[in-house]
Design a binder for these strands. Sequence first.
RNA 1: ACCCGGAUGGCGAAAUGGUAGACGCGGGGGACUUAAAAUCCCCUGAUCGCGAGGUCGUGCGGGUUCGAGUCCCGCUCCGGGUACCA
Length: 809
Amino acid sequence: MEETPPNPYTPSVVEPKWQQRWTERGTNTATLDNPKRPFYALMMFPYPSAEGLHVGNLFAFTGSDISARFHRLMGHDVFQPLGFDAFGIHSENYALKVGAHPMELTPKNVANFTRQLGRAGFMVDWNQKVDTSRPDYYKWTQWVFLQLHKQGLAYKKAAAVNWCPTDKTVLANEQVEGGLCERCGTPVEQRFLEQWFFRISDYAPRLLNNLEWLDWSNVTRQAQRNWIGKSEGAHVTFDVQGHGERLTVFTTRADTIFGATYLVLAPEHPLVNTLTTDAQKSAVAAYVEQTTKQDLISRKSTREKTGVFTGAHAINPATKQPVPIWIADYVLMEYGTGAIMAVPGHDERDFEFAQVFALPIVRVVAGADQQADTPFDGAAFTDDEGGRLVNSAQFDGMSVTDAKREVTTWLNTQRHAEAVTNYRLHDWCISRQRYWGPPIPIIYCDDCGAVPVPESQLPVELPNIPDFKPDDSGISPLARHEEWYRTPCPTCGKSARRETDVSDTFLDSAWYFLRYPSATRDDVPFDAARTKTWLPVNSYIGGNEHAVLHLLYSRFITMVLKDGGHIDFEEPFTRFRAHGMIIREGAKMSKSKGNVINPDQYMEEWGADAFRMYLMFLGPYEEGGDFRDQGISGVRRFLDRLWASVRDATTEGAADDEVLRKLHRTIKKVGDDTANLAYNTAIAAMMEYINVVRRGERAPHRDEVLPLVQLVAAYAPHLAEECWEALGHTGSVFDAGWPAFDASKLVDDAVDIVVQVNGKTRGKVRAATGAGQEDAVALAMADSGIAKFVTDTPRKIVFVPGRLLNLVV
RNA sequence: ACCCGGAUGGCGAAAUGGUAGACGCGGGGGACUUAAAAUCCCCUGAUCGCGAGGUCGUGCGGGUUCGAGUCCCGCUCCGGGUACCA
């Protein structure tokens, strides 16, 4: 038999050993009450799919875990909880597909996720877990709804949903592909249903302004700014000829009013019926119906302009000329006032429309080299930089910027305009005509109307019904269960009906971070003292796919709870960082490509520590990385070498001075990089260090390897614990703190100074630390390899102390 | 179309305006071994040269600077997000 190396690193032994110890010793349990330096580290909780943990989840969680463990090493009391976003259409659709019930499937998936998460070795305080589909959680989701209702921020109105006439069911936007139902291929229609909305648009200015000071990834803040879509403009009012009615439009280009040659209303506009003349009634009705028959997605993506004349005319308040009123689906009811003044000369869409229907196009803005009568060259003139007004009476010659203001003021004096700020953000529809979600806690009584369920009667439990599939009624499956929805009115006691819609999953996740510290309390949604101690969240890490919806809704709900007096902060996440996406061998991972990584398999073969570390080594955490199968051997080799160094470490003699200098530089770099989520370069620095420690199979000194164990702990927690123990400690390395570094050890006695001649590097000289320019020049000129390029007396000398000398001749 | 990112060796990637390619993968050579694996050491951008050494090189074209992968202007391509938003 061959001689095997003594005591090799065996993750399959080390990892379970420490996972068990952590559980036994409560290593990952946070000190929730009276912590000294509380630090709430949050990662976005996963949706527990049947496929199990995706490598993308693992990538995200590992980066978050490293940050949390690092903060703990730096002396914080870190609370890092995790839970499951278990409600929602994904779970429900999957259950439908496999013919199982979500109430049975979900606990199984949660158990599998919990196993996988444990296997990966995350520092999660499982005592405080959350599962949004359990009554002890959604009781409080319903409570949140009631707070909004109480504050007048929840209301009901009719709104369009996607409807599949074959499956006879409501579809989510992602279930519509190119205007067709993803399951049966039938063209999808719109239906108008009464639904619950939250007035998030009231909060638009606050949501926008706070972005200025939030410590969040720029990409995320920018995405939210775009989504909120602040737009400065004016409401302009047109009198309708022969009617008492007036029409108000929103425009950002009040300056072009003289070129407004027609108006367009959204087909759903409430005045369409009133304004349409008898002659046009049937054409308009047909068009409105055709629009309705289209799904929401393809209506917004087809670019061909269609529309119908209503037969009515309005008076342009600037020109006093009558202009025709049309309806067209390119005008959206949900933005602005659902009506526009069309200026075909200076708006691409209006131009296209005017071309199709031969409507007049008037130039009212001229560019630098254009005149009032310069013809349009087949396109609208939208470049307003340096444009001057033409064909606009007293405003001729004025710049576009000035005219926006002046025209609005002028129209305002005639009560025809008002400067307004409009937001793209519209109210949040939380109704889902589905089963797998928290029932909306409202009871309809014929006498009392829509009555909120009293808080004392929460939760409104989701019944376990076998037939949870949506049906042809267009309303929730719960509506088929009279025994469930019949209930006495809380106000008058008469027989009444429960709301049968459930709420949006985004409501579940819009407050979950408040629940974690208080997850074991069943008498309150969140304990006042714990909330004060732990919130707002110190560090939130997650995917930028949630940049808008989840993060915006969470901010909104937090503001509402603050306004309701439940909490004393209005921004939930002090710091947010978006991680990147992980691809494989240059291609996106997908089931259809069959290139999805199975984390279990990799952890089995290489160990969780190696897998974690490899994921972090792929590239910058905030940008993502390319998973190449062969690459993992590199980090595994590093861990093998680390273990061997600990195993072979000696206490005899003293540590090598050179190695110690490298060590102190490494402590600094790993600390700085880890704090900045620059995990890839932190790992590279540790690899560099171990290359120095092990160079030529030298036996390292204990003092050289011990601090490295602390540095690597956040990255490879199991192995670090094992090493820490092997070095004679009984406690956890995570309670050992961060190694001290000696700044004086960062500087050498001598440094290399790069020497350039005319900006070209020609060599380097070794100079004493702190050497001045004259010393450096002397050393450079003494080097024949450098001096030969210095053909004349230097005209100019650039000297960067300790770094560089540039001789310009 | 708009808003963000990004483009650097065979590959994943590093580089406060200061030696481009750290670290890792892959490849080549060597040591150890009967042998292989593992481990360890060295080499590995292109090109010219026997060599010392030189020249070129960070998507493209300009500019600023003693000096540009990095800053500025104008493009090209790729990725992500939003999208008839008036």
